[in-house]
Design a protein around this nucleic acid. Structure first.
Lengths: 239, 239
DNA sequence: TTGAAGCGGAGGCATGATCTCCGGAAAGCC
DNA sequence: GGCTTTCCGGAGATCATGCCTCCGCTTCAA
């Protein structure tokens, strides 16, 4: 319908193209190490470029970051699909979790996106794409008797979240520590375990929880209950 | 040695005393719900008082918060000691974890203090007091054959951290969800599980990890590597 | 009744992130 | 080489936000 040439209005000058690549590379490193708390200014400096250059190429850090993440997220979705091809259902499930965590633990910015720290919508999109494959993986493992029947797909989401926490806590000095706790959790997913005292979240509940998730130290909505439930004027009544 | 009367220089006027109590009560609620991100201003408004009043009573929010927490932390230490009195070593261990998590999951500010979000020193103090009792609880359980031999006291620290994450994620709508995942983790602590692929952190390593723990979205040290590893001047060489 | 103690909250100070602007430096075409 | 276009750099404007002070007014209590 429309012309195809829209993608290349002008070829971009040589230095500009090079700097753009430098920026993307720098962003990858900076966001992976410090998360999206890093500013475009930081990225620019890390690339050895001026701030202006960065803002000329990308409107803001989220534009840059989401371009970067898109690709990685695709990787995760793919690994879910590939895990379905593994013969042993349990192995498949484990393979997926590990593959997905290898990527996540290496990239703090990605963890933040996946946990919906900055943009719940973005995260919701990702979950849309992942929920189906993950459910399948789980059900297949349950039908084969490898996973307890009362486990739920949202459990895998929480396990993922817990591993991210471990990665955050352990930091660069023990980058593989999460594997220890994943092993522990997976043993707890096997049949014959203690009955769960609490029901799993349903998928919509899970979605909600992630969206409203008050990340430690994230800016939250102001305290709107100010004074309403407190004695009006307290110890200084009007008369 | 010194006189005892230092504690009461002046009796504090009636309204002042009352407002002080109101502030403490408000702080308890506000910090529990929103964590230490809340400002003294927030606490004051929640108490129905002016900001000035708050600052007259407490130099800053940390002074107020740590006074508040002290008491709760004591509770946790006590519950560790009481857990040693439980006959069944496994039950004792579980009882301690649950008791400590009941307190923590109900109070986001406490979680932050215990995770060392704001003040690593404070956290270190708490860990000093907890490490001994927790180790004992664990070893006793291991000797009774209830817990796998290769589990470590630091594992309990990470399990605790993971449960806090669950609590953060689940929020107020599912305040007990952590029990589900604690059950899962505890099953994974039982003897006969899959071999761990990674060694546990040693206690000093654990301490370090907590102290340097880059909490999601916490302000961190600036990127000091700016430009050093990047091509100097990039696409704009000096001549 | 009257001075001391306490209150409220506007606003000053500090921090830090985001993004703009424009003089000057390449790039690329002739 | 000359000349236009594109791009660069980074100081600093703008905005957001949190912390805390200050001072005119209110309330307490002797």
């Amino acid at each position: 319908m429309t012309t195809e040439q829209v993608a290349t209005p002008r070829p971009l000058r040589k230095d500009a193209a090079r700097n753009r690549e430098l920026l993307i590379e720098a962003a990858r490193e900076v966001f992976a190490r410090r998360g999206l708390e890093a500013s475009l200014d930081d990225v620019a400096h890390h690339a050895g470029l001026g701030v202006g250059t960065a803002y000329r190429h990308f409107a803001n850090k989220y534009e840059l970051a989401s371009a970067l993440m898109e690709q990685t997220i695709e990787t995760i979705v793919n690994s879910a699909e590939q895990a379905m091809l593994v013969d042993d259902p349990w192995e498949g499930l484990v393979a997926f979790l590990e593959a997905s965590l290898v990527v996540q633990t290496a990239d703090r910015g990605l963890r933040e996106v996946l946990m919906g720290v900055h943009d719940p919508q973005k995260m919701a999109q990702v979950h849309d794409r992942l929920f189906g494959p993950i459910s399948e993986l789980l059900h297949r493992a349950q039908q084969s008797g490898a996973v307890r029947e009362d486990a739920d797909a949202t459990d895998l989401g929480f396990i993922n979240g817990m591993m991210c926490t471990v990665a955050d806590m352990a930091g660069d000095s023990s980058p593989d520590l999460w594997r220890r706790y994943l092993t522990m959790c997976l043993d707890g997913l096997r049949p014959g375990g203690t009955a769960f005292p609490t029901a799993a979240l349903s998928e919509p509940e899970f979605r909600d929880a992630m969206a409203n998730h008050k990340h430690t130290l994230t800016r939250t909505t102001k305290d709107t209950s100010a004074g309403q439930d407190a004695p009006a004027k307290a110890a200084t009544p009007a008369s």
